[in-house]
Simulated scan of single mutants.
Amino acid sequence: MIGVGRVAGEISDGQLGAGIGSSPGSTLIVLLSLVASLNLALFVFNLVPLMPLDGGQMVGAVWEGIKKGFARMTGRPDPGYVDVAKALPVAYAVSVALIVMSALLMYADIVRPVKLG
């Protein structure tokens, strides 16, 4: 986020606008495309199939559907719901790894900021 904020600041100041155009409309378009790309990256990252993210919930639902479909095809009784709470240790480990990685990247971004142009 720090690097994105710096890039957005440099775009709005006009430091990165040499090849883009000098009109305020083009600067607004570049800033909106920056926000849209950040939003899209967050959407894709959130679909990673690990438990603290939404992809982990989707994996549990897909696994439950596969189990129910297999039981229905073989004539077995309904196996019941999948307990996604059993994956909480994995969720805790992934959460700690994401927090440590975020802190490390923020520190690196403050110590040696991103320079474009």
Rank of each mutant, 00 (worst) to 15 (best):
V4R: 01
R6V: 12
E10C: 05
D13W: 05
G14T: 00
Q15L: 08
L16S: 04
L16Y: 07
G19H: 13
G19T: 11
G19K: 12
S23H: 03
G25A: 10
S26F: 12
L28G: 13
I29M: 13
V30F: 13
L31P: 02
L31A: 09
L32W: 10
L34D: 04
V35I: 15
A36L: 15
S37P: 01
L38Q: 06
L38F: 12
L40A: 14
L42P: 00
V44Y: 05
F45H: 04
N46L: 07
N46D: 10
P49C: 10
L53P: 05
D54A: 02
D54L: 01
G56P: 08
Q57R: 13
Q57I: 00
K67H: 14
K67C: 06
G69V: 02
F70I: 15
R72M: 09
T74P: 04
T74S: 11
R76W: 12
P77M: 04
D78T: 02
Y81D: 10
D83Q: 12
V84M: 14
P89Y: 06
A91I: 06
A91Q: 10
A91H: 09
A93W: 05
A93E: 06
V96W: 10
V96T: 11
V96F: 15
A97G: 13
V100Q: 00
M101E: 07
S102F: 15
L105P: 00
L105T: 13
L105I: 09
L105G: 03
Y107P: 00
D109W: 01
I110E: 04
R112Q: 11
K115M: 04
L116M: 11
G117A: 08
